[in-house]
Design a protein around this nucleic acid. Structure first.
Length: 134
DNA sequence: GCCAACGTTGGC
DNA sequence: GCCAACGTTGGC
């Protein structure tokens, strides 16, 4: 089982839309490193959903329901999408500030690679964040 | 709104 | 293949 974190700007597609849609194509990624991570996602992997910009908080959990396929928003075969399904909303969002304050979370890519939009996350980091969200 | 970080493009 | 210029992302 893999664990991931994806970022979203709530102004373009946020958690509320995902809740409404139940599942969505995670497409439009145009960064090689992020794309490589998308390709490594497996069905049933758990994916934390982070809001950048105004919120700056991890707001919920999704699961992978379809592994990497051609990004439907382009004909360019370099880019892929995955399908993510709404799983669970955190009771309280875990803010970037909280994450920065946690010693055990000081290595997460969210902090170390600010601009990466799809990143792997360690199992114990994942569990820690979910615990903070209770 | 500003700016740092960093990815991409294009000239050489 | 290097590097300057430029564009974008995202935190503050």
């Amino acid at each position: 089982m893999g664990y991931w974190l994806v970022k979203s700007d709530p102004d373009s597609y946020g958690w509320d839309e995902l809740k409404r849609d139940k599942k969505t194509d995670w497409d439009g990624v145009r960064n090689y490193q992020a794309r490589n991570n998308l390709r490594l996602m497996k069905n049933d992997d758990e994916v934390l959903f982070y809001h950048s910009q105004s919120d700056k908080a991890i707001i919920g959990i999704t699961t992978v329901t379809k592994e990497a396929y051609q990004d439907p928003t382009t004909d360019d075969d370099r880019w892929v999408a995955v399908e993510l399904k709404y799983k669970k909303e955190l009771k309280t969002p875990v803010t970037l500030k909280q994450i920065k304050c946690e010693d055990s979370l000081s290595e997460v890519a969210l902090i170390r690679h600010t601009r990466l939009s799809v990143m792997p996350i360690e199992e114990d980091e994942f569990n820690k964040i979910v615990a903070l969200g209770k």
